[in-house]
Design a protein around this nucleic acid. Sequence first.
DNA 1: AGATAGTGTGTGAAATTTACACCGTTAAAT
DNA 2: ATTTAACGGTGTAAATTTCACACACTATCT
Lengths: 227, 227
Amino acid sequence: MLPKFDSVFSIDCVIFGFEAGELKILLIERNEEPYKDWLALPGYIVEQDESIDDAAERILYELTGLRDMHMQQFHTFGEVNRHPQGRVITVAYYALIRINGQKELRPVTQYAKKAFWHPVNELPKLAFDHSEIFNTGFNKIRRRLHYQPIAFELLPEKFTLTQLQSLYETVLNKKLDKRNFRKKMLSYGFLKELDEKQKGVSYRAAKLYKFDKRKYGKIFQGEMTLA
Amino acid sequence: MLPKFDSVFSIDCVIFGFEAGELKILLIERNEEPYKDWLALPGYIVEQDESIDDAAERILYELTGLRDMHMQQFHTFGEVNRHPQGRVITVAYYALIRINGQKELRPVTQYAKKAFWHPVNELPKLAFDHSEIFNTGFNKIRRRLHYQPIAFELLPEKFTLTQLQSLYETVLNKKLDKRNFRKKMLSYGFLKELDEKQKGVSYRAAKLYKFDKRKYGKIFQGEMTLA
DNA sequence: AGATAGTGTGTGAAATTTACACCGTTAAAT
DNA sequence: ATTTAACGGTGTAAATTTCACACACTATCT
């Protein structure tokens, strides 16, 4: 028999990454009952003496080894029976990050066997109500893509316009017109054209661009409409 | 010395109403420590055996006498010291409702001395972090006004176009052009023109309109851009 | 030298947004 | 009966934004 508990707060994290033209999220394989061996979102219990924002950072780190992600809460799930051991209300956070091969995923606690990226299409069944949490989060960023510069958090620092477009197409799940897309993106004035070109491709190399955060801040006060 | 408690969930409600060209919110006067006699948002503790959505309905009812409001959560506040007696994480909900003189505000518990409407301008200091909660909620509905038909929840069932425009102007805090506003609103096709006119005004009576929820649903699938 | 794969560019039509002002109606006041 | 005060209701033209659409260029690989 598992222990029962009352009134526990937890955090669950939906972390998006973009790699090889695919959108992925970060999952763990659980090493604890309930749902031992299942796949799940990185999530755990909030301590008494930490804010939920701090808890989110800590928990993500402990379960995946990733630090200093900028996460934002997007919804709180509070159905009575969402956790088999008792009443657990969970605040869900999301972040968008660059998948650089460099950062290793290595849980620092025993609660997770491992952490890994998984394409958002063909997601398996997840533990608890994590599939629902994921869907809610995915819809959230899909909307947010239209009015916040979140695409640039997923791309490498230097990127081509085609990569940017491909990201939009993936998240929004629809084709966009190349000429119109480029015209519009460039018209905002927050993309900085670099003197550098793509390398290692077997076709004409494309120009690289950077997202210029300062210019963005000057142009919009947190508001914009994109793609 | 007040009792201390651990890990409590609570709900706080930001309920908007519109009356006499003014936007108002529902406040209570507290009858309990801490912050006894202060003004506060209606809010209380979630029970073990109720979902947070259910808790929100119950709590609003107990503190104000209002029932069957359709509330939606908008943010969760989880700073460590937001409550002087211990760790309390609160999920904030909002709703927009018609202030009909008819519905009486009458708390059914002792936790509130009374409940009343207060204009959103010139809000006094509120208990706990309720001022921050209110601001977050106000920003939320301000954004949402642009893409969800929430204005119609604030107006009486039958309303004039001028009332509708005045509501938009109040919430967005800017003047809109009368002709453009009417043209656009009518172009959506979800406003039903009634055969009735305004009564009891000392000037030419305006036509009354109704929001046609069915048509709205057909036209948009939860998406729109307004004003 | 040719094949392959993706880069980069412009125009016109259609739709949407914006700016703008006056006469009509009603009830209350004189 | 007339006037006044207050709001109701309406159209057009210019500017801007969105949308649809196709081909020549460049780099690499064989």
